[in-house]
């Protein structure tokens, strides 16, 4: 009789306070798929990584589904960009998840942009300039050099949270950085012939990539960040593209293809499907380095393919 009582009290406590038994693997929740890929690269088998935003959707606007609360409530670590990209939906989720381990200032809160030199930090916050992020342009992982900084943060935190895995995390970090150092010169070599080439993108999400590879991606289909393209603006973009001989338009999976197609038809430029998130396009699922490889190939292909530039591709 006494035993049954204790059993039920234990069940009740378990239900009310959660299971205190130690989890085998670290549960890491990343806001976006690029950060998730880096967390997987560093954590290997010792961590379980979940990504909140789908790689195909707009990371500025993610539905804060209730199921995300469940994931965040259990997480040992939260990995986020930290430059304002996810602020609108992540902050309310964090406030409701009730998990002190991943709140700002907790060990499990990984703000990846720390140490990254953010570009385009506005001198003045003014929304008449569109949705400009106060911290600067948040799409910094398009520059592979910044991935080095991020994996460093990830490894540091994983070591703190799971000391037993120190060797593995450090080994994975080294392996990633070595692979990056092997790939980067090759990527730079592939894009070197096109130094200074000008490209159009839908949203201003490529300044870090442009800077790294000496491209000029400064013409956007959006008149201002976050403001949908207007006919008048597209007309000016077309004129500018013709004047400076722009041959490629970068479009991410979630962006309005129709606007890009209109411009492509009017200028004879090519649509280049790109993404900043592994899994955003077929062939990018494997990881961060594979994604960068894909991007370099896609953009080199678009810039070198003079023949196709004249035939209008609208598919």
């Amino acid at each position: 009789m006494h035993g049954t009582w204790l059993f039920w009290i234990r069940i009740l406590l378990l239900l009310l306070l959660g299971d205190p038994s130690v989890q085998a693997r670290l549960l890491v929740v990343a806001t976006t798929a690029d950060l998730a890929a880096l967390a997987r690269a560093v954590g290997g088998d010792r961590v379980e990584v979940l990504s909140l935003a789908r790689p195909t959707e707009d990371p500025h606007f993610v539905d804060p589904r209730p199921s995300y609360l469940v994931q965040l409530a259990r997480a040992d670590a939260l990995v986020h960009g930290g430059a304002g990209l996810e602020a609108a939906w992540l902050t309310p989720l964090l406030n409701r998840a009730g998990n002190a381990r991943i709140l700002p200032a907790a060990r499990g809160h990984i703000r990846c942009c720390e140490g990254v030199t953010l570009l385009e930090v506005p001198e003045k916050l003014d929304r008449s300039q569109g949705d400009v992020h106060a911290a600067g342009n948040p799409h910094y992982l398009a520059d592979p050099q910044n991935a080095r900084i991020v994996v460093h943060h990830l490894a540091d935190t994983f070591v703190e949270l799971d000391f037993a895995g120190t060797e593995i995390y450090r080994k994975n970090q080294r392996a990633f950085v070595e692979a990056l150092e092997r790939s980067l010169p090759a990527w730079e070599a592939r894009l070197r012939p096109f130094a200074g080439a000008r490209l159009v993108s839908y949203h201003n999400s490529w300044p870090y990539f442009a800077l790294r590879f000496n491209l000029r991606i400064d013409l956007f289909l959006e008149p201002k960040p976050g403001i949908p393209p207007s006919a008048a603006h597209l007309g000016r973009v077309v004129a500018e593209m013709k004047a400076s001989g722009v041959r490629a338009i970068l479009v991410e999976p979630y962006q309005d293809r129709r606007a890009a197609e209109t411009v492509a038809r009017a200028t004879g430029a090519r649509l280049v499907p790109v993404t900043q998130y592994p899994g955003g396009l077929k062939g990018t699922e494997a990881g961060y380095l594979e994604l960068m490889d894909y991007l370099v190939r896609a953009i080199t292909g678009a810039l070198s393919d003079r023949e196709q530039a004249s035939t209008i591709s609208t598919r």
Binding site: L118, E120, E123, L125, Q129, A134, N204, K224
Partner: peptide, 28 residues
């Protein structure tokens, strides 16, 4: 032309010693 986005042309890197504008929201 104006296509040099006003944000883009005002490229500055983050400087911890410079006095930053008073930011309301998002951690400022």
């Amino acid at each position: 032309t104006f296509f040099e986005s006003p944000v883009h042309s005002r490229q500055t890197s983050w400087n911890p010693t410079q006095s930053l504008p008073w930011r309301l929201g998002q951690g400022g």
